[in-house]
Each structure stands twice: as structure tokens, then as C-alpha cells.
Amino acid sequence: MVSIFIVDDDENLHRVYRSFFTMKGIDVIASAFDGSEAVKIFGKLNPRPDILLMDYRMPNKDGVSTTKEIKQIDPASKIIFLSADETARDQAFKAGAISFLIKPVRFAHLLQTISEVLDHQ
């Protein structure tokens, strides 16, 4: 089963992501609502998630800084950005993101991206 870690400051999005992923047989193994919390949780996760879904604009620590720290903990981690802020694209890739999607995105597109990322393993 594919496992996923959702990092986003929007509670409502957490709920719909979880419902969808559960419906599609994807295991949401962790959730964080800001960057600092995400780093803290990620450090303790064992096994690591197959995919991290990362927002950009979040309190305490943004998605780019969070990605850098998570990549330091586990350089093999696969981080997909899902943000409404297109300007963060270049920074996200520099920090180590593997894909960048702009909100709003259809779930089918999100699933396809996850599948492509996992296929490249």
C-alpha cells in the first residue's frame, strides 16, 4: 500500500485529501499543519512515507524550508508540492521537490502525478 504524509495548514483540505486517498487505497500515515510540525513528525516516522504532499505558504516554516530540512533527514524522500502560489516553483525544485502542482487540481491529476513519481523509483 502506498503511504502519504500530508503537510498543509488548511484543515478542510486535510479532510478531503484523507477521504480521497483512503477511497483510493492510499494510506495517510501522518498529517502536519505547519512546516516545523512536519519536520518534527517526519524525523520520528518509521517507515518513511512513500510521498509527501507539501503546501508552500504555512505558518512557522514555509514549504521550501521544510523540504530542505526533510531532504537533509532523508535525501530519498519524494516531495510533491501542491500550492496556490506559482511563484514558489523554482525554489521548490531547488530545495529538492520532485513535482509541483498548482491548486486547484483535480484529484485524477494528483493521483496521476503520484503514480508517475512512484514509477520513477
Binding site: D10, N12, L13, V16, Y17, S19, F20, M23, R57, L82, A84, D85, I102, K103, P104, V105, R106, F107
Partner: peptide, 18 residues
């Protein structure tokens, strides 16, 4: 506005898809 509206749109879109 664009950022927040698109976050809201994302929630609505996924909920409708569900």
C-alpha cells in the same frame, strides 16, 4: 486573494469530486 481563493477552490473541487 488569488492564493486564498484557490485554496478554497481546491477544497470545493475535491469535495465535489468525492
Amino acid at each position: 486573494m488569488a492564493h486564498d481563493l484557490n485554496n478554497i477552490n481546491q477544497g470545493i473541487m475535491l469535495a465535489l469530486e468525492l
